[in-house]
């Protein structure tokens, strides 16, 4: 599992939590971005194996980030981290091209289960 994971969230605390959970699941190589626009330039500048993004962010939302990454022709797994309220709009995110979603607050185990699901084989 040498995949570099791009963690996108406008909250620094949330990024820390997500990165800690990723590290605990064996994903040591992570890179951060504070909004969708920054994430897109990071994504284009390096080899990213997995994207974990928040939905609601300034500059560019997780939804628009997903659309932009898919428009580049990339099939990279994208996990959207949603709140309970955004869960009702998850159909929209799926149509935009996310691979899966996680509802906040999520546990280390929930993230790990999703990671294993998409990074196995």
């Amino acid at each position: 599992m040498s995949k570099k994971v791009l963690v996108v969230d406008d909250s620094g605390t949330m990024r820390k939590i997500v990165i800690r959970a990723l590290n605990a699941s064996g994903f040591a190589d992570t890179v951060e971005a504070a909004d969708g626009a920054e994430a897109l330039s990071v994504f284009q500048g390096s080899e990213i194996g997995l994207v974990l993004t928040d939905w609601n962010m300034p500059n560019k939302s997780g939804l628009d980030l997903t659309r932009d990454i898919r428009a580049l022709g990339s099939k990279v797994p994208i996990f959207m981290i949603t709140t309970e309220a955004e869960k009702g709009r998850v159909v929209e995110a799926i149509q935009a091209g996310i691979t899966d979603y996680l509802t906040k607050p999520f546990t280390q185990e929930a993230l790990q289960a999703k990671l294993e699901k998409y990074t196995q084989a």
Binding site: V90, V91, I94, Q95, I98, T99, D100, Y101
Partner: peptide
């Protein structure tokens, strides 16, 4: 609740 199932239904 899986994305692939939602896409199938849609």
């Amino acid at each position: 609740t899986e994305p692939e199932q939602m896409l199938r239904a849609l």
